[in-house]
Write a protein that binds this DNA or RNA. Structure first.
Lengths: 148, 148
DNA sequence: CTAGTTGCAAAGAGTTTGCATGGCG
DNA sequence: CGCCATGCAAACTCTTTGCAACTAG
């Protein structure tokens, strides 16, 4: 487990820096590419894909598939705590990434492994849905619609 | 809400019949196309896409985006089954998409909603991991590696 | 007859891959 | 110096669109 995948290059640094500086939002390859070009440090699209792929494998970045036409979204994962032991909730509305520390989720993983023979990978698994803050206004709006 | 979009054609019937007969599984456009061709009632890809799009708009069919390379998955929605949601397991190794009908998963959703205020969307949520079939040979291979 | 439908093929978008060059170590 | 990294462009896959012929009503 040495620097198996780490060659210190300008491109790698640029990508990594961009991801860490935008850890609060999910970004597409296109976004990254455009940004780096504007910064005067352009990186080839293929290179971005290749790095992102590795980062996902390493669990440093998460990949989301929202829509075919939009393309994949990526988001840096802060390696602060043991991220491999908990799951993540992703709000489809505001894009917020929530850390879920929940024994129930772990039990689910155990259950699925025991009963369904499937070993869940918490690093890549993300629960999509609507967060509390986004749900509140949405519910209010729906009431109006219902009565309209 | 009259027959705004209903012209009774052979193609439409074929697609609809296929979807209702496979309501228990998720299917791709490719799957549908192949099947219909084999049945001697081929339907153009574009037509399948167009019908599926309408069906999704009407809420009769659900669309899942799991992976960019896999393409979209569709599933017919039975009215009385709408609350009978299920989840998906995606094997990272063989790419297989597994249908998970598990009460435990539903309980997890309830729990997360009640305790964490987050409404999970089963439509978008996919559990990534390794399936049973892929895990077996992988474990064997790892033993060799470990001893090597 | 009119308007929605179909199918082919071309266009698009996102992602991957091949290969020669370049740079880290 | 060896090997990974990079970048360009071509290849690929899935999906959408244009358009002329077709068909349900």
């Amino acid at each position: 487990m040495s620097g198996t995948s780490g060659y210190k290059t300008r491109q790698r640094e640029s990508i990594l820096r961009y991801m860490t500086e935008h850890k609060d939002s999910h970004v597409t390859v296109n976004t990254i590419s455009d940004y780096l070009s504007q910064q005067g440090t352009p990186v080839g699209t293929a290179t971005i894909y290749r790095h992102l792929e590795k980062l996902v494998e390493q669990g440093m970045v998460r990949k989301y598939m929202v829509d075919a036409s939009t393309g994949a979204c990526f988001q840096f994962v802060t390696p602060d705590r043991q991220c491999h032991e908990h799951y993540h909730l992703k709000c489809e509305r505001c894009g917020k990434l929530i850390h879920l520390e929940c024994h129930f989720a772990k039990e689910l993983a155990n259950h699925i492994y025991a009963e369904h023979g499937f070993a869940i990978d918490p690093l890549r698994t993300v629960f999509y849905g609507i967060c509390q803050e986004c749900a509140a206004p949405a519910a209010a709006a729906e009431e109006e619609t219902t009565h309209g």
